[in-house]
Amino acid sequence: MAKSLMPVPDPHPDVFDVEWPLRVADVDRTGRLKFDAATRHIQDVGSDQLREMGFEETHPLWIVRRTMIDMVEPIVFKDMLRLRRWCSGTSNRWCDMRVRIEGRRGGLIESEAFWININRETQGPARISDDFVAGLQKTTPVNRLRWKAYLTAGAREDAVDVRPYPVRVSDIDIFDHMNNSVYWSVVEDYLAEKPDLVAAPLRVTVEHDLPVALGDDLEILRHDYPAGSTDAFGPDVANRTVTTLTYVVGDEVKAVASLFAL
């Protein structure tokens, strides 16, 4: 949970580098770039890089298993966003991809996401072609990336809060389940009551276990762990206050999020 994110290898010809404006739908009432909007940008720049690399037709389907986002400094409305994307770890079926989002007038968001290449017919993990992997490895020496969960679901019995989260038709994507960015709308709902967290550098991680479908009775279980009680998250987080949000349908865990100040 307290891992150090790979620094941007700049300048580097294989770092994908684009700009686009920050739009009104991307910001909250204060003008801050929201986490759910940042996640959409992370998805979109991934699609653009895939097209630029020439693999949009051969590797069209990807799902994200984990996204870690550090809001180092808020990016505010009417700014121009610079997004840089590069690979920080590879395997033959999945990869870690870093995205740095900067505002021209200030503000910085760092992220890393664990992406799995999906076979259209089986809907399972698929091998990434050798030439694609070779391109990804130009920015990282990590070529034996393994999946390891960082987060543990909280139980309903000791949750400090349980809230329903209705799933809307507009939340469902091409895979017929709730899009990754919607999980971050849940994070924004929590942060609306915690302005002190948004004011400081903040790390939020979302891990996905199972998809959420239209019609599911989704609930969010919240657990708060005070500083000094968080050694279960690792020694580097033991002195932090950590909040977890567990996404459940009945007794089935769909995803888990964690939040703590950096």
Rank of each mutant, 00 (worst) to 15 (best):
K3F: 09
P7S: 15
P9G: 11
D10R: 09
H12R: 03
F16N: 10
V18D: 05
W20V: 12
R23E: 13
V24I: 15
D28C: 12
D28S: 08
R29K: 13
T30Y: 11
T30F: 15
T30E: 15
R32P: 00
R32K: 12
A37W: 05
A38P: 01
H41E: 13
G46L: 11
G46S: 13
Q49D: 03
G54F: 00
E57I: 14
T58Q: 07
L61N: 02
L61C: 06
V64E: 03
R65W: 02
M68F: 00
D70N: 09
M71V: 04
E73R: 10
P74D: 10
K78Y: 06
M80H: 03
M80P: 00
L81C: 09
L83R: 14
L83P: 04
C87T: 11
G89S: 09
R93V: 02
D96F: 02
R98C: 08
V99G: 01
E102M: 07
R104S: 10
R105G: 12
G106P: 01
L108G: 06
E110C: 07
E110K: 08
E112S: 10
F114G: 08
F114N: 05
W115P: 01
I118E: 01
T122H: 00
T122D: 06
P125A: 15
A126R: 12
R127L: 11
I128W: 04
I128V: 09
S129V: 13
D131I: 13
D131P: 02
F132V: 10
F132H: 09
L136E: 08
K138P: 06
T140S: 08
P141D: 14
N143T: 13
R144G: 05
L145T: 11
W147L: 13
A149Q: 10
A153Q: 05
A153F: 01
A155E: 14
R156P: 00
R156E: 12
D158T: 14
D161S: 10
V162R: 09
V162P: 02
Y165K: 11
Y165F: 14
V167S: 13
R168I: 12
R168S: 03
S170I: 15
D173P: 03
D176Y: 08
D176V: 15
M178H: 06
N179M: 08
N179F: 02
W184Q: 10
V187Q: 01
L191E: 01
E193C: 01
E193L: 04
L197K: 01
A200G: 05
L202I: 05
R203Y: 02
V206A: 08
V206D: 05
L210V: 07
P211T: 13
P211W: 02
A213S: 11
G215R: 07
E219K: 08
D224F: 07
G228C: 05
T230C: 14
T230K: 10
A232Y: 04
F233A: 05
F233W: 03
D236C: 14
R240Q: 09
V242Q: 06
T243D: 04
Y247C: 13
Y247K: 09
V249L: 04
G250H: 04
V253E: 06
V253W: 01
V253C: 12
A255W: 01
A257G: 09
S258R: 05
A261G: 04
